[in-house]
């Protein structure tokens, strides 16, 4: 029994839902996994959210040695922070005044879940996946992000074993902030690359 779609929803199961239920029930019936283990795995994934990625970014903003390690080997850097990132092979790409990075998985929906949690629906949509590789500037503009023509856009298509995280630029007006406060301006979308952290001065209406 799962929570999914059980509130007043009497639609027949789709092909893939039926396959998932059948496979899961078979695995339980044959003693390969228990219902408890399945629920624990789902809960573990639900607990993960972009706050973890934001902590990593904030640390890179204040600690140059950590930032060097993060760009060289993202997995080792996360482990050094005590973050549990099983099986994650993390490539961190840095935004600079000359380069803006944005992440997509055109083939499916590869995403650094260990650091950002479950991806948003738009990240998995055919619209985003097919368009951001072909017309990244218009897609970013639809997110409200206009990238100047003298800034190169680097799209990263996550097609195989690596997972990607954007290291955004630290916004002006955050001088002297501690890591926890810095992390509060780092949103999920900033780490996918469809937004940039707002400077505290620019959040005024």
């Amino acid at each position: 029994m799962t929570e999914r779609g059980d509130i007043g929803n009497y639609q027949p199961l789709t092909y893939f839902q039926l396959m998932e239920v059948s496979l899961r029930e078979l695995l339980v019936e044959k003693g390969v996994v228990s219902e408890q283990a399945v629920n624990d795995a789902v809960e573990d994934m639900r607990r993960r959210g972009p706050e973890t990625g934001a902590r990593v970014v904030a640390k890179a903003w204040v600690d140059a040695d950590f930032k060097r390690l993060l760009l060289d080997n993202g997995t080792r850097a996360c482990e050094a922070m005590g973050i549990d990132v099983p099986a994650l092979k993390l490539v961190v790409v840095e935004n600079t005044p000359q380069v803006h990075n944005v992440i997509v998985c055109t083939l499916c929906s590869c995403y650094p879940r260990m650091l950002l949690g479950i991806p948003p629906d738009w990240y998995k949509s055919r619209n985003y996946r097919s368009r951001v590789v072909r017309e990244p500037r218009s897609v970013l503009a639809e997110f409200g992000l206009r990238v100047a023509d003298d800034v190169a856009i680097r799209v990263h298509d996550s097609t195989a074993d690596m997972r990607y995280l954007v290291l955004p630029m630290r916004p002006a007006g955050t001088e002297g902030w501690d890591e926890a406060r810095l992390a509060s301006v780092v949103t999920r979308d900033c780490m996918i690359g469809v937004a940039v952290p707002r400077s505290p001065r620019s959040t005024k209406p």
Binding site: R137, D149, A152, R154, H156, A160, D161
Partner: peptide, 14 residues
């Protein structure tokens, strides 16, 4: 492609 010529796409390929 209408954007600047510096725009790139990076892909993992075996």
């Amino acid at each position: 492609y209408p954007g600047p010529r510096e725009d790139t796409i990076d892909i993992e390929i075996f």
